[in-house]
């Protein structure tokens, strides 16, 4: 299921995503990965964050805008089409669905918390235990499980980006330095070549994204 992004289809040519995480968990990087993935699919995208007050461990938010035309909005995203909750404990302290459009998509890392998901029944809810996925592949930075990679993999289930472009974006963003995408992307080639020659941590990241994608469950409605 891919969202319509035609210009004539007013209001749908743009997808706004909000990501909830805690400072240090890589929320901005997740926003960047989503944006790069969309960019690989030939779409326009921007990624940004709420700046200023971010401190390690405190709740923070990052954003991705995806559109099929040049993005000219620089204002904050107040009514997202989609919310991604990276940290399993954050839903109890932050109103994660604030402004989320009715019927909007909500992807939650449930972790091992018994998060009450019933209260989100107005939205299209997807759940995954990204923490477990991360730990399974021993993906840690400074002892903290890496959540952005599995969550970006899981986000491919929402139909905004494909799993292939998610994986390619992860590769490019984690590749360090700058993210180079070729303009050949407009030809639509997003296949991952030569993954077997990648460093093992990079392979593990890709496997984590894929596993999270597989394990993501839609909790209500069809799909």
């Amino acid at each position: 299921m891919v969202w319509s992004m035609s210009e004539s289809d007013e209001g749908k040519h743009e997808i706004e995503i909000r990501i909830h995480s805690r400072g240090g968990q890589g929320g901005v990087t997740a926003a960047k990965m989503l944006a790069v993935a969309a960019s690989l699919e030939g779409k326009y995208s921007t990624a940004f964050s709420i700046y200023g007050a971010e401190r390690r461990g405190s709740p923070t938010a990052s954003f991705t805008r995806i559109s099929n035309r040049e993005i000219r909005k620089y204002s904050q995203i107040r009514k997202p089409d989609c919310v991604i909750v990276m940290d399993p404990t954050i839903a109890s302290v932050v109103d994660v669905t604030e402004g989320l459009k009715p019927g909007g998509k909500l992807l939650i890392n449930v972790g091992n918390n018994s998060t009450d998901l019933e209260r989100f029944r107005d939205y299209e809810v997807y759940a995954v235990d990204a923490t477990r996925v991360s730990l399974r592949f021993d993906l840690k930075v400074a002892g903290i499980p890496v959540l952005n990679v599995p969550m970006v993999g899981a986000a491919a289930r929402l139909g905004i980006i494909s799993l292939d472009s998610a994986k390619q974006a992860i590769l490019k963003v984690l590749g360090g330095g700058s993210v180079v995408t070729s303009l050949a992307r407009y030809a639509g080639t997003t296949a991952l070549d030569g993954t077997e020659s990648l460093p093992s941590t990079m392979r593990k990241n890709l496997m984590a994204a894929e596993l999270a994608y597989k394990e993501t469950k839609r909790l209500n409605g069809s799909g």
């Binding site: 926003a31 960047k32 944006a35 960019s39 326009y44 995208s45 921007t46 990624a47 940004f48 964050s49 700046y51 200023g52 993005i71 620089y74 995408t181 303009l183």
Partner: peptide, 14 residues
Amino acid sequence: LEGFVLSHVMQPLR
């Protein structure tokens, strides 16, 4: 370039 809204926003760059 305006702080944060442009300095910190990530966009594709040719």
